[in-house]
Amino acid sequence: MQPILELSGVVKAFGGLVVTDEVSFKVLPGEISAIIGPNGAGKTTLFNQITGALKPDRGSITFQGTDITGLDTQEIVARGMGRAFQITSIFPEETVLDNVRVACLSRAGHTRQPLKGLGAYKSSTEKAMALLTSLGLADQAHRLAFELAHGDQKLLDIGVALGLEPKLLLLDEPTAGMSPEERHLTRTLVQKLWKEFNLTLIFIEHDMDTVFGIAQVVRVLQQGRLLAEGTPDEIRANPEVVKAYLGEEL
């Protein structure tokens, strides 16, 4: 099967600090995978390069068969990639509904329309409401986004990404800062969304229950290098990974 995303020999350095070091891997369509690694391993920086927020120094990134290395974020997003952020990135003074609706409107190509009110765009509005229902945020649709609890803001961030109907969705620490119960709910939700929207999904995560609970493939990043890649069982059994990162807790 053609990979949906392929990185080959990607390198990125900040000054002397090599943050992405010859990283190569392939992601198959429909896969749900995790990237793990200690803080500062370069996980977020990798997402930044895949989504065009940063340009790699070397190497190439291929998405759905086309080379997207060096393209602008807007162009990559338009090709079907979505992303939610480690530090929640929403539109705080808009309503929860409008946060998702703006993504749906953008996807439908309506964002240059200057005359009709938002309500006139029925299908975008309905799609946004349906998404909020999937995320369990429908009852808060008319609140302002900054009024939401932290965990709900994280979910809304995912909702904004989903409004674009991405084929590939990148989630940067979806359960960060959540309570154990919230984390459990979010894990189930992420898996549900993956199935419901036929996504290819890559998530960065520190919570091992989430990683080993829902990922089909796990990739371990350490000091910018891809240390290991495999099924959860393979990763658990990998002595290098156990030594370097996971320690005795597994």
Partner: peptide, 8 residues
């Protein structure tokens, strides 16, 4: 920054 991730 997020607007770019809306494809705009």
């Amino acid at each position: 920054a997020r607007v770019r991730f809306l494809g705009r």
